[in-house]
């Protein structure tokens, strides 16, 4: 655990200082979507990999967090920590409300129930024009401030560091929780549900906790999305997003939160950077990435190991 913590801190420091120093001017902004999509992917990784509950609906709590942040920011609440707490709460509350119908299901049924929830939320976001701005989306969102009374974060590097810090904290908390007894209970429920029940564990309760945690992570991601692009629309939170974060989590090695984040970065770099050299064929390159990953990295990105020194 201590080694993990140190590694995590080192990685965060590298991401905070080395990456901006090395990257060409203007590339930092291109990595921002990876932070917004990375947290829902981490949630999927926990839910699907650890708790065994596949989901194609994380776009829903992502949407709730994003719209909550956008509306609060437009109403004048531009302080980062307050937005993050509000978005995480909104995502968690959504998960609490929908959880009872989700955690009863398993396998493909769970996949389709969450898909339906995601589609219903995205549709509602497109039609509830007075609140969400409809399909044209919500614009005119003021930039975030680091703290009460701070100056707005508009500079690319400052914004990037904000995203890194939030992502690292959320990831750290996730890893800590997974290392706690709850994490073991989740893995137990996934592998030996009947035995866990027989031993008196409330499997449904554990799954609900995981679902709420994933909802909070997705809500946080929604807040980062709004911070990063000063805009949100139903297209940002629909099936495309839900499937992308699931695939990114699988790409990263399902069950590994850091892998999910790495998978998201890989997807974003291929989609936004590599595909820019061949306009119109982004889907082809993304498809090739997925196919290649299935065969070359059977256990995901996390299966790559450093040689023993």
């Amino acid at each position: 655990m201590r080694a993990q913590l140190l590694t995590g801190l080192a990685l965060t420091a590298l991401a905070l200082f080395a990456v901006p120093a090395v990257l060409a001017d203007g590339t930092l902004a291109m990595l921002a979507p990876a932070a917004a999509l990375g947290l829902p992917a981490v949630g999927v990784s926990v839910l699907t990999g650890r708790a065994g509950l596949p989901t194609l609906g994380q776009g829903a709590p992502f949407a709730v967090g994003a719209y909550a942040t956008a509306l609060l920011a437009r109403a004048g609440l531009t302080t980062g920590p307050a937005q993050l707490v509000a978005a995480a709460l909104a995502g968690a509350l959504f998960a609490l409300a929908t959880g009872p119908v989700v955690v009863r299901a398993r396998g493909a049924t769970a996949l389709m129930i969450t898909l339906a929830l995601g589609e219903l939320v995205a549709t509602a976001a497109g039609r509830w024009t007075s609140v969400t701005g409809g399909t044209d989306g919500l614009a005119g969102i003021p930039p975030v401030q680091l703290w009460w009374g701070g100056s707005p974060l508009t500079d690319d590097t400052a914004l990037y560091r904000y995203l890194v810090v939030v992502t690292a904290l959320a990831l750290g908390v996730t890893v800590l929780v997974l290392g706690s007894p709850l994490g073991l209970l989740l893995a137990g429920s996934r592998d030996h549900e009947e035995r866990m029940r027989a031993a008196g564990h409330r499997v449904g309760g554990h799954l609900l906790a995981a679902y709420i945690g994933a909802g909070a992570l997705a809500g946080l991601g929604g807040a980062l999305l709004v911070t990063e692009q000063s805009y949100v629309s139903p297209a940002d939170v629909g099936f495309g997003t839900s499937s992308l974060v699931l695939l990114a989590a699988v790409l990263g090695g399902i069950g590994s939160p850091l892998g999910a984040l790495a998978g998201t970065v890989l997807v974003v770099v291929v989609r936004d950077q590599l595909a820019a050299h061949w306009p119109g064929h982004g889907p082809l390159l993304l498809g090739a990435l997925f196919v290649a990953a299935v065969y070359l990295l059977p256990d995901g990105i996390t299966s790559i190991r450093l040689r023993r020194p």
Binding site: P54, G107, P283, L284, G287, A288, Y295
Partner: peptide
Amino acid sequence: PLRRRGHLAQALLTFGLALIGGD
């Protein structure tokens, strides 16, 4: 070759193939 690797690996593969085929 993916028989033992579960639905998610298949999902990644077939989704990738769908993207390639569609393009």
